[in-house]
Design a protein around this nucleic acid. Structure first.
Length: 820
RNA sequence: GCUCGGGUGGCGAAAUUGGUAGACGCGAGGGACUUAAAAUCCCUUGGGAUAAGAUCCCAUGCGGGUUCGAUCCCCGCCCCGAGCACCA
């Protein structure tokens, strides 16, 4: 749109048209000069901390997805400020990690050069978007005075016994000879060269998040979070109640041996016709009979080679027999012990009882290797004697068969009874398992905070003393991962060769860096304490500002980032450093925007560059459009054409203020609509119904201008405040023009007068047999009898009613239904 | 396969979750202003019957059900999106 014609029109010099570029520049300058967006953290009376997910500063610049997220947060924050809170709205950069590193590799530049440039560009774009960010408290995870405390955090976990080292598999590309992150593995193949990915075992650092599984799960019941996010976390934590049952066996040397298995279906024990161990199970070695050694050994080698993803997704069952047998504690029969990769070492005990009749995976395995399939549960409409063609997994309708004394028990009762029966000789106990496994924080990479550990020949693993932090990530020219399987830092002896802090002998630094998710697991604690260089988070300021009051972000972080943040907060709470254990009081997941029906991507060529749109339409119109295009929590479809709608709305708002009258009195019916709008917007914004809030304001604008009337000052001034969270620049300008003092954001939200908002007559819907036949205007508080009389007086209603009505349904103030 | 979203005009979407289906916006059509165009302003805009703005019928992915009344609740399907994925 080009409004230069109107602006320069010599025939209407008195009319000043809305010029977003000029207004936005002006107010961004004023905000900066006056410190409008700054929050006095010490003196704040009603602190309110709004948090948005900090972006990864990519070289491409700000994505509309970022802006969609930030604008939604900003509106919420600005609204809270208008409601009288001292709002703190910080923003920083999540600049470490594989993303940045890969991009740097691709363009052949160093991340240490690249990142500051990207951050500067982001900062410029973010300021143009008109966010109420207090930039004095910004941070980047790549700054040594930030990651110093990330390393400190690692040391705290180490101290608590929550950090430990173990062997774990990583993705390995044999062609590129490098460790791959999960996102670099596409369908089991290396993203870059297409070679099938293998597993490699490396010593890595882990955090015991699984110790916190019960608490991470239980607290979900009381925190005010989007249900979708809570559900995702519940599934990820994956609590299952079941039993651990021991199967007795003899090892190759004839010694007694017990193999515990985990099952959620102890009721099906009579149908356990074989047993399976994970290939990595420690007992495989001693259970494999000499003549099976070769086969089993080869199978274990083969599964080790397979990459993690194809192993987990292949449907064809494979496996080998060990030659040994175990005793089913219920039937006391011998059952063969197999090894198969469909059993995972990470879950349960790494061993299962095979119940092919009632588990589809076991059914497939048993069918393939011709193991006996016994039915022990029967559905209501089933014949217990017909052979199974698939596993019968229904629980509710099942009754036990072929299960000795338990025949006839219902599944739920049988679970309990069989468990009690087995517990008598200690071969079973009830147990709860979680699928959440420990958090691997080691990365064999360059672009991250070095893990603060020194390995000493005589002292072993030694923590870097806190006074020596940060362990600064050195600038190295060759940061590309290589075939060594360890971090590029391991090529720099001058860096890793250090004296042991304990004994002074030669030591070697840990050369792995930590996971980016560790950087982001505590950044919200840091913001209010930026500037306190001697502590990670300062005591009084933390007490005042945390936990975070409002956090709005994408659900793609529902499990990783949000769960890790909760875990870290709990750990710090337990260490006595925080007095709360949940970091985010309220969390809302926003949706995602697509464009012209497709996800935005380079290949589709439908990426929106915010700069161009802000240039063309103004930040205010662009922000408002992003909020208007669909329900915020669901996202929506971005269409270029539609932006003109929100822009026109702002044009009209601007024009109406220029031409408003200050004489006479406001129209009572317009004032009624105004108060209805104040109510509607005030209700919609807190629940993130931004699209309907904008619609309500547009509707009011239509009322204001209906029949080319000139709006009165009192009718329009409150609308400026309603619009301000969405379109802050134009609101400030109009606030100033209408004689407001200071910033509109330091004024108050318009006071709602419910009596002014109330209608005295209403449109009552009249139905006959549930079909709308008429609408009659009646007093708001009309009684049922009077309403029936009025309705029957209406000829179209009367037409459908013959004789006395059978029934009357009356919804006061709304609807009357006559059942004839 | 499992879990969570979602399916409503030409399009993005509303409907205070059992009470007027389609608010608001885009687009489209018509008109005013203009030499003209753009911009702006006004009117129309789910489909059908009808001389009609009166009135009636049909319509919220499909098929049933509950109810005076269903976009909303229940049962059985189909499609789209996102995430998880051999978790015993």
């Amino acid at each position: 749109m080009d409004n230069s014609a109107t602006r320069d029109d010599p025939f209407s010099p008195s009319v000043v048209a809305y010029d977003p570029q000029a207004i936005e520049r002006k107010w961004q300058r004023i905000w900066q000069e006056r410190g409008t967006n700054n929050t006095d953290l010490q003196r704040a009376q009603r602190p309110f901390y709004t948090l948005m997910m900090f972006p990864y500063p990519s070289a491409e610049g700000l994505h509309v997805g970022n802006l969609f997220a930030f604008t939604g947060n900003d509106i919420y924050g600005r609204f809270q400020r208008l409601m009288g809170h001292n709002v703190f709205e910080p923003l920083g950069y999540d600049a470490f990690g594989i993303h940045s590193e890969n991009y740097a590799l691709k363009v052949g530049q160093h991340p240490m050069d690249l990142i500051p440039r990207n951050i500067a560009n982001f900062r410029r774009q973010l300021e143009r978007a008109g966010l109420m960010v207090d930039w004095r408290y910004t941070l980047s995870t790549t700054e040594p005075n930030y990651y110093k405390w990330t390393q400190w955090l690692f040391l705290q976990l180490l101290k608590q016994g929550l950090a430990y080292k173990k062997q774990a598999a990583v993705n390995w590309c044999p062609s590129c000879k490098t460790v791959l992150a999960n996102e670099q593995v596409v369908g089991g193949h290396c993203e870059r060269c297409g070679t099938p990915v293998e597993q490699r075992l490396l010593e890595q650092w882990f955090f015991r998040i699984s110790d916190y599984a019960p608490r991470l799960l239980e607290n979900l019941d009381y925190i005010d979070w989007s249900e979708t996010t809570k559900t995702a976390q519940r599934n990820w934590i994956g609590r299952s109640e079941g039993a651990e049952i021991s199967f007795a066996t003899k090892d190759v040397k004839g010694g007694e041996c017990e193999i515990p298995v985990f099952t959620t279906r102890p009721d099906t024990i009579y149908g356990a016709t074989y047993m399976v161990l994970a290939p990595e199970h420690p007992l495989v070695e001693q259970l494999t009979k000499p003549k099976e050694k070769k086969k089993v050994g080869a199978y274990r080698e083969q599964t080790k080679k397979q990459d993690i993803i194809t192993r987990k997704t292949s449907t064809e069952k494979t496996g080998v027999f060990t030659g040994s047998y175990a005793i089913n504690p219920a039937t006391e029969q011998q059952i063969p012990i197999w090894v198969s990769d469909y059993v995972l070492m990470e879950y349960g005990t790494g061993a299962i009882m095979g119940v092919p009749g009632h588990d589809q995976r076991d059914f497939e395995f048993a069918s393939k290797f011709e193991l006996p399939i016994v039915r022990v549960v029967c559905g209501e409409r089933e014949d217990a004697n017909t052979p199974l063609s698939a596993a019968f997994t229904e629980c509710e309708s099942g009754t036990l068969v072929n299960s000795g004394v338990f025949d006839g028990f219902r599944v739920e009762a049988a679970k309990k009874a069989i468990l009690e029966f087995l517990a008598r000789n200690d071969s079973a106990k009830p147990i709860v398992h979680y699928r959440l496994h420990d958090w691997c924080i080691s990365r064999q990479r360059y672009w991250g905070p070095p893990i603060p550990i020194i390995y000493c020949e005589s002292c072993g693993t030694v923590a870097v003393p806190e006074k020596d932090l940060p362990v600064v990530l050195p600038f190295v020219e060759d940061f590309k991962p290589d075939d060594s399987g360890v971090s590029p830092l391991a090529r720099h002896e001058e860096w890793y060769r250090v004296a042991c802090p304990k004994c002074g002998k030669t030591g070697r630094r840990e050369t792995d860096v930590s996971d980016t998710f560790l950087d982001s697991a505590w950044y919200f604690l840091r913001y209010p304490s930026v500037g306190h260089d001697d502590v990670p988070f300062e005591k009084t300021v933390t007490k005042k500002w945390l936990p975070v009051n409002s956090y709005i972000g994408g659900n793609e972080h529902a499990v990783l980032h949000l769960l890790y943040s909760r875990f870290i907060t709990m750990v710090l709470h337990d260490a006595g450093m925080l007095d709360f254990e949940e970091p985010f009081t309220r969390f809302r997941a926003h949706g995602h925007i697509i464009r012209d029906g497709a996800k935005m991507s380079k290949t589709h060529g439908n990426i929106v560059n915010p700069d161009e749109y802000i240039e063309r339409w103004g930040a205010d119109a662009f922000r408002s459009y992003l909020m208007f295009l669909g329900p915020y929590e669901q996202g929506g479809d971005f269409r270029d054409q539609s932006i003109s709608g929100t822009r026109r709305f702002l044009d009209r708002l601007f024009a109406s203020v220029q031409s408003m009258s200050t004489e006479g009195k406001p129209d009572p019916s317009v004032m009624r609509k105004l108060h209805q709008t104040i109510r509607k917007v005030g209700e919609d914004v807190p629940r993130l119904s931004y699209n309907t809030a904008v619609a309500a304001m547009m509707e009011y604008m239509n009322v204001l201008r209906k029949g080319e009337r000139t709006p009165h000052r009192d009718e329009i001034v409150p609308l400026i405040t309603l619009v301000s969270p969405f379109a802050p620049h134009i609101a400030e300008e109009l606030w100033e023009q209408t004689g407001g003092t200071g910033s509109v954001f330091d004024a108050a939200w318009p006071r709602l007068d419910p009596s002014l908002a109330a209608e005295d007559s209403i449109e009552l819907v009249v139905q006959v047999n549930g079909k709308v036949r008429s609408k009659i205007i009646v007093a708001r508080d009309i009684a049922e009898e009077a309403a029936v009389v009025a309705a029957l007086a209406d000829p179209t209603v009367a037409k459908f009613v013959s004789g006395a009505p059978k029934k009357i349904i009356f919804v006061p103030g709304r609807l009357l239904n006559i059942v004839a």
